[in-house]
Every structure is written in C-alpha cells, then in structure tokens.
Design a protein around this nucleic acid. Structure first.
Lengths: 342, 342
DNA sequence: CTGTTAGCGCGTTCAT
DNA sequence: ATGAACGCGCTAACAG
C-alpha cells in the first residue's frame, strides 16, 4: 500500500481511501454519487472523511473533470445597490445546489472586462453570468470560444451575446420620459454615469422620445464614464443647473444619481416636485422610503438574477437553451419627485 | 514529435511549444519569468502565443504550483457602500500585479462563512482577504490550517486571527457616544444590523460609555441580524420612537441606517438636529453630501483595503509578517445631524 | 539558458 | 458495485 504523504500536506482522496481500506475512486464516488456506492462502504468512507477533515481539491477536480463547480459572475461594480438585488436572486437559485459562485469587478472598462472574462475562462468555471457589459464585440468573441454556458443580463435585445434575461432599457426610458412630459416638464436633462451598453440603450430611448416632441437638446445630455454615486449626482445636477438654468427636470440613469440630484436641489432651495422633477432608474431599496419618495423605473433585478442563474443551471445540466431571451419587463413607479400629471 | 490534440480543444502549453520548436517548460518560463529565457526564444514564443491565442489553464497551474494566482476575498456582503471603498483599495494595490481577485459573500452567517472559506481554501488561492467575520473560533481553525497567507480587516484587537489591518471599533463608538453626550442628547438609542464581530465591538463601546454616565438602558439597544439598509433604518427608527418616545438621539452602526432614520424623522416631522440627533458610522460617500450632511465616524476603508492587500502580497512573496496588526484609526466627522456642543 | 523527468489530486474509461 | 490505468495541463526539481 503506497503511503506518500511525504510532506505534512493536507488530506487527499488517497489518504481517505487508504484509511477506509477502499480505492480512491470509491471515495470519489461516495462523495459525488452516493447512490453508486453500497451503504456500508459509504458510511465507513464518510466517517473517515469527517475524521480527517478531508476537503476536495477543486483545482485537481477542475483539471480532471473540465469544470470546477463554480459559477463566475462578472459584474460592472459589485458594490452597488442595483447589483445587490441581482446577486440576491442569483444566490437564491444557487442555494441547495452543488454549485458555488464568485464575483469579479469589470469596472465598466472594456479592457478589464476582457481580461477578467479570460481569467474566468481559464479556470474551467461551470458557467458564467454577466451583468452589464462594455464592448459587445469582445464579449461575443470570448463567449463563442467558451466551453461553458454563458448567460447575460444586459439588454433583452442583445441576443447576439447568447442567452439573455433582462429588460428592454430603451423602451423603459421612453416610458419614463413620457411620464415627465405628462407632468408638464419641458426642459428635461439626462444624467448618466458608468456608461455601458445598458446605459446607451436608455439614452437612446430618451433621445427618440424627446425628438418626437421636438424637445431634444444634445446639450442637456451629460454622460460620465466614472461610477455612479450619490456625490456624483449632486455634482452633475449642479453643473447642469449652472450651464442650463432653465432645465426643469432630470432623468437620472441610476437612483444614486437621482438621490444626489435631490439633495442638491434641496440645498439650492429648488422645490421638488413642484418646480423641478426627478426620475430615477432601477428602484433600489432606498427609492421608496426616501422623503420624498423617488419616482423611478423599476427593473425586476432579483428575478433577473434568479432566472439567469436558473437558465445557466439548466444549460450546465445539459439542457438545450430553449429560450434565447427572457423579457422580464419593467414598471414605472410614480412617486413623490414628479408632480401630478395634468 | 507528439501531437495529441485529438479533440478540437483549446491550445495548450505543449501546442505552443511544438509550434515554437521548444519544450513546454521553456514556454512556461517565457510567460512567467521572461528573464530566464533568451530574448530570441522569448520573442519566438510570444509570437506563437499571440497567434494561437493561448491562455494558461489556471486549474492546471494551481494544481502544479500549489497556488492559482488569485486572491480570494470573503466579504460580509459585497453590495454595500461601506465595502466599496475597501474593494477599491484592494484592487488599487493589486493593480499591475500578476495577482487577480475574486469575491464571495459570507452573508453575515457563520455557517456560510465557514463553507465559503473552505471553498476558497480548496482552490489553492494565492491568499485570502477577509472583511468582517461572524465566528471567531471557526475562522481561527480554518486560518491555522490554511497554507496561504490570510489578512483580515475585522477589528484591530482580534490578533488571534492572524495579520490584521483595521481600526478599534470599540474606541470609535466611545468617541461617537461622547460626542452625542456633548451635544446634550441624553436618551441615546443604538441601531445595528447585520451583527458581526465588528458590530459587537461598537456596541460594547456604546454600552461602556453610557454606563459611565449612568445613562445606559438595554431597552434602547436594537440589533437585527438582517443586512443593513436604508429601509431598515426607517423601520428601526419608527419602532424605537413608538416604544420609547423619549429617545432624543440614535447612534446608527451604519450610514444606511442613519439615512433611513433621517428620512423617517423628516416624515414624522421631527427636527434634526435641533430636537433629535443622528450619528452614523463609516462615512460612506453619501454622508457628506446628504442634506443635511450626516455626522458619522469615518473609518479609512480605502486604506484598509490597500494596506491589507499590501500585507498579503508581501506574505505571498515570502516576506515574514512584520507587523501583526496595523491600526488605521478613525475620525469623528461632525456635520449637520447633531447640534452644536454646549 | 534549456531540457528531462516526475508528479500535483482527481475523474474518466473500461474492466471486473 | 468496485477497481486499475491513464491523463487533464502545468510546473518543481534536477540535470546538462
């Protein structure tokens, strides 16, 4: 009986096998496919596993089986409220699965996004989940070469990227702008940050709708590459009002920006919603409880994460991707930062 | 010359080696330690690498080298503003390093924390970073068994857990409470959520300080296990005021709770800071720009992440851990939600 | 500076 | 239901 363990390393499958008096593969099976091992052996093996504190080596498992049981999620920026709900949804679905999940930041940067995607791919992940995306072409290339399923949550219309779960951000923006128009706001600026494919779609909805009314003014578009945040919302509103004092409403492409815009309005003594309207996007958790509560576009992000994870799991389990795209819709939440419609 | 490539798999090191007419190890070296390969060979090899689009297999690399070049970070909840700064700091330090980072949620749950730590360990990470922690004993056990360096950012006094970068949360809380007392608030409630080791330390500082003044009342302590959030802050303030209408200030263990508490105060017509004081914790990005701006305790979280990553890198590179703990201090930011001191 | 040999720990395949 | 042999792709250790 070969006993290697030259160095005081951690317990391996072989150690467990030796101690239990069976072969390595039987231990492996007892752990992964309990049904294929007799009850007697299984019990004996599990006992040794518990005693020795054996933990499978994922690197070895990944190398041998061609997938490491980990779902990798590429997120524009993990620390944001909008993403939080998606993550909750994903983990809810992965609960009680033998899959695990890990995240990485893409930082809304095409280059970092690419490198991270490559890093993921090089680890034999069970699958990849993408929320957001910068460069469509790069993503397509990498995804086509991937040997694991990929599901993304960018925009329902980007089916070129493979399976997608999400909403139509262009239409959602159109509805939001319609609402602001219905409230009789006329000089509507748009504030966006962390520009990615989704943000671009929202901008398009804004432009198209205002053009229809002959109210589109490219000067009122402010798009910054940096990450969205409350302080940035303050700054953007301030700059907007200083260069265009006649603006009477802002469509903020994220609720953080909207909250920042609101604080700044308050500071400047502007009356919201009477003289100035604010519409956010996402309906993150503080939107409904702010004072005044924030008018915003609700995107079902929890469901998005859940469904995306669900689709991914099905594909991991060999199911053919039935739906190439699932539209979860959106909902305009009319609250306190826009005045009553006429 | 052995040409396997039976299946249409991806390019391997051997493929590159064959094409370049060298051995596998030389390609490996050309990629990892360029200096040890002659310039001529290196150029030839890198050319083939580029042509074939070769990407290293991290699972194989991890198995062979006993570490996969990935720093794993265990975070209580990745989607929170407080964590955002830490993450920025970490990634700033890891920038231009050949290390990469990935995150996982511990969900402020001892069991999940343990499982995730095991999962990390089983992947041969280059190192582990922990922000927050639930169960000291479990963590100690796992960390002692780890064969990679571990640095945590829980509380400066928890040196039992190994290398630590952070602040003294107990003292910070004492200073905050002192400030509230100086502002002549007397019935000070404490609102906390997502209770973990750090939150417990803050609670201790609160208790000790009020006990000294004979003002401690356990009824005014509200600690919830669920995650901190703005809506939760609203709810906790509401419940506090309903059961103890005489409370005249709250110490919120996170700024989200403080913002929620403020919104609720505004809704209830309470005057902040004249009749009611609010002090937050962390000084997340919205604190300074809120209207009124939020009095809070600033923890240097960006530096924390940066220094923690720095220490980890040093240990990965074989340096002995010189400092076992680095105290980054804290700072009370007196702003608009507490009235002037007497 | 470069190559050879020998695994890393596990799962797959094919026997039994 | 269990096991033997082999290989996954790469790097450490040692040679030359």
């Amino acid at each position: 009986m070969r006993q290697k363990r030259i160095r005081g390393e951690r317990t391996t499958l072989l150690d467990v096998a030796n101690k239990a008096g069976v072969s390595a593969i039987t231990v492996s099976r007892a752990l992964r496919e309990p049904d294929r091992v007799s009850e007697e052996l299984r019990e004996r093996i599990l006992k040794v596993v518990a005693e020795t504190g054996y933990v499978p080596d994922f690197a070895a498992r990944a190398l041998a089986s061609r997938h490491n049981g980990i779902v990798c999620a590429l997120i524009p920026e993990v620390s944001s409220l909008a993403v939080m709900n998606i993550i909750h949804g994903i983990e809810a679905r992965l609960q009680d699965t033998d899959l695990r999940i890990q995240y990485a930041n893409a930082w809304r940067d095409a280059d970092k996004e690419k490198r991270q995607l490559e890093l993921f791919l090089s680890q034999h992940p069970a699958g990849i989940l993408m929320a957001g995306g910068q460069n469509q072409q790069i993503i397509v290339d990498l995804i086509l070469g991937a040997k694991c399923p990929v599901v993304h949550m960018i925009d329902i219309n980007l089916t070129a990227l493979g399976t997608v779960v999400g909403s139509d951000h262009c239409t959602a923006a159109k509805v939001a702008i319609r609402h602001l128009l219905d409230c009789r706001y006329r000089r509507i600026a748009i504030l966006g940050a962390g520009v990615d494919l989704r943000v671009q779609r929202r901008l398009e909805g804004y432009r198209v709708t205002l053009e229809e009314e002959g109210l589109y003014d490219p000067q009122l578009v402010m798009m910054l590459p940096e990450a969205t945040s409350v302080p940035l919302g303050c700054r953007m509103l301030r700059e907007t009002m200083e260069s265009h004092p006649d603006v009477d409403a802002v469509f903020c492409l994220n609720d953080d920006l909207a909250l920042g815009a609101y604080f700044e309005c308050k500071r400047r003594g502007m009356r919201v919603p009477e003289d100035f309207g604010i519409c956010g996007y996402n309906d993150v958790n503080f939107a409904a409880v702010a004072e005044p509560p924030l008018t915003t576009v609700r995107i079902p992000r929890y469901d998005m994460g859940y469904r995306a994870a669900d689709l991914l799991i099905r594909q991991i389990n060999g199911e053919k991707a039935a739906h190439q795209s699932i539209d979860l819709g959106f909902q305009l939440m009319v609250r306190g930062t826009t005045r009553d419609t006429a």
